[in-house]
Design a protein around this nucleic acid. Sequence first.
DNA 1: CGGCCATTTGAAGGAAGTCAAGCGTAGTGG
DNA 2: CCACTACGCTTGACTTCCTTCAAATGGCCG
Lengths: 237, 237
Amino acid sequence: MAEGGPSPAILRLSRLAPLTTPDMAALTSALSERRELRAHRELLAEGREISAPRLIVSGWAARVRLLTDGRRQIMSLSLPGDLIGMCRQPRPLAVSTVVALTDVVHCPAPAAHSLPHLADAYAVSQALDEAYLLSQITRLGRLNAEERIGDLLLELHERLTLAGLTDRGGFNLPLTQEVLADALGLTSVHVNRMIQLMRREGDIEWKARRVILRDPEMLARRIGRMPPRVTAEKGRG
Amino acid sequence: MAEGGPSPAILRLSRLAPLTTPDMAALTSALSERRELRAHRELLAEGREISAPRLIVSGWAARVRLLTDGRRQIMSLSLPGDLIGMCRQPRPLAVSTVVALTDVVHCPAPAAHSLPHLADAYAVSQALDEAYLLSQITRLGRLNAEERIGDLLLELHERLTLAGLTDRGGFNLPLTQEVLADALGLTSVHVNRMIQLMRREGDIEWKARRVILRDPEMLARRIGRMPPRVTAEKGRG
DNA sequence: CGGCCATTTGAAGGAAGTCAAGCGTAGTGG
DNA sequence: CCACTACGCTTGACTTCCTTCAAATGGCCG
C-alpha cells in the first residue's frame, strides 16, 4: 500500500513503544502471513470463540452492534496498526462483531512472550483502545451533532498521523456518510447537513473521500477535545 | 454491608473464575488493608499516574468526564468486585477520573503473578468491563430514553446479582436521577419523566432508592438486550 | 445510455432539552 | 416542637435538535 516507507501498521506500533530488532523481525515475519478480506466481510463474530489476535495491516474495520429492528451502532473504528481480538482470559469470546468497512489486509499479531518491547506496544495499544472507547461514550452522550463530527475527525486525524497516513493536513476517509452516521449515533441525513454546515463555516474541506481540517487546534479547543495519554513514558501513547 | 455471607467483591470474583484456597487467602489478606473514601472524592484522576490496581469492596463509583462548559458524562459505573486502574503498560496514566458516588470501601487488588486462577478472574473482569463499555456506546448511540433506562437497569441487576447484591427481584440503587442522567446522556428532567412513564406502564417499581424490575426477561426482550458473554469456560462471565 | 449508489434538499413531526416553579422530606438549629 | 434549609423529585410551557419520509441530484462504471 504505502510506497517506500515502512508499513503504517508497524510504524504505528513502533511509535507506541520503542521496538528492537527482534520485535521488528517478528512483525515483518508476521506480515508475510498477511491475508486479504473484502469489504463487508467479518473479521470476528460476536459470541464466537476467538482464535488468535490479528493486526490490521491496511484498510478500515469497525466493531459493530446490530439491534433487532435494524438499527446499527459502530462502537469503534479499527485502523492500520490496530489490534483485533487481543484478550487474556481462557477461551475468549468476541464481545463484538468486527466487520471490514473497506478491503482489509490483516496478519497475525506476533506473540510477545519473549519480546517485552512488543508487549509494551501491545499494552499501550490496548490502553489507547480503551481511551477511544471512553471518548466515544462522551461523544455520543454529551456532544451535539456538529461537535461529534468534529471530535471524530480530530481523533481520526490523530490516529492516522501516528500510522503515517496523513499528508498535507488531510487524510483519506473511506467511509460513506451512512457509516459515519452509525458511528456517531445520528442519521445520515443529519450528518450530511452538519458536514455542509462545517464546510460553509470553513472548518473542514471534504471532497472525494479526502478530508482536510482547516485549523485542528482551533477546532479541538472549540469542542474541548484532549488527545488521550495512556503512559508517562517518553514514547508517545 | 452484607451480613453473614462472603464479601460481595470476593463473591463476584470467585464467580468469574473458580478460585482456589491461595487465591482466597490473597484476597482476604488484601481486604484487611481496606480503606474508606467518602462520596464525591476521587479514586483516580485523569492524566495522573496510576500506582496500583484497587478492588471495590463496597459502594458505587463512576468513571466520569467533565466538559469545559460543565456538561458531565459518566462512562461506566464501578460496583463491588470491580477493579480500578488495572493496566499493563509501563507507567500507566489514568484515562479517566474515577469518583465515588457513595461512600466507597476499596482495597488493593492482590498481584496475580503466582495465582493463575486469580489472573483468570481479573482477565474475565476486564473483558466484562470492555463489554459493558461497548453496551454503553450502543445505549447512548441508538436507544431512546426509555430503552436506555431499561437497558441500564437490566445491566445493573445482572451485575449486582453476580455480587450477590440483589434480593427479591430488586436491588438498591443509590443514585440520584441527576447522576443517572449523566450516565444515560440525558437530562434529569427527562429521566424523571421516563421513569414515571415506566412506573405507570408497570415495568418497574422504584421507591426510596430501591428498584424492582417487574419482568426482567420481558423487558430485555423488548429492548433487544443480550447479557455479554466473554468466555466459553463453564464459570459464567 | 442506464443503473446504482451516495449525496443533497425539503417539509413536517417527534423526542429530548431548557427554564422555572412547586412539592416533599430529611436534617438542623433555635 | 416548629421554623428553616437543602436537596431531590415532580410538573408545565416552550424551544431546539434531530429524525422521518420522500424526492431530486450527481457521479461512476459497465
